[in-house]
């Protein structure tokens, strides 16, 4: 069991993504996404950043504050992300309901929606303490 958004969680995400996502499965994309967690427990904000280069996992980062620049940003309350990770809330519903805010080219995002689901499913297998 690792703590959500901790360095241990980051290392486990990195390991699992590299193990389960081949460049072919990721359609050889080059892209990046930064999830920004607002109103975190204890205050402040955190980020989870993941990038791919030609389909290969490039960087997996977590930390305090806004995090690095990315092609897509998803921002929302920590609790909303936590609910999604616990499978209590669908990410589509969170976006459609305005609980999460996506910033980036929507046309490109549409093409990446299934890849994002693939990534989230792998992350969801990590035993996490919220």
């Amino acid at each position: 069991m690792v703590k959500y958004l901790s360095n241990e969680w980051q290392a486990e995400v990195d390991k699992q993504l590299r193990a389960h996502l081949s460049p072919e499965k990721m359609n050889n994309i080059t892209s990046s996404m930064n999830n920004r967690y607002l109103n975190c427990p204890g205050g402040g904000s955190k980020f989870f950043f993941v990038s791919f280069a030609d389909g290969k996992v490039d960087k997996v980062l977590v930390g305090e504050g806004e995090g690095p620049k990315a092609e897509f940003y998803i921002s929302g309350d920590y609790e909303i992300f936590a609910k999604i990770s616990r499978a209590e809330l669908g990410s589509q519903k969170a976006l459609m309901g305005g609980m999460l805010k996506l910033k980036g080219n929507m046309v490109k995002a549409l093409k990446l929606a299934s890849l994002s689901d693939r990534l989230n499913k792998i992350i969801a297998t990590i035993e996490t303490e919220f």
Binding site: G76, L95, M96, G97, L100, K103, N105, V107, L110
Partner: peptide, 23 residues
């Protein structure tokens, strides 16, 4: 995507909007 396909503008200059947070 269709408008992009028809236009002289490139992928970074034709955006789609949708009823979604931030979009």
């Amino acid at each position: 995507a269709r408008a992009l396909d028809d236009s002289w503008l490139d992928e970074d200059h034709v955006m789609g909007f949708a009823p979604m947070g931030g979009q």
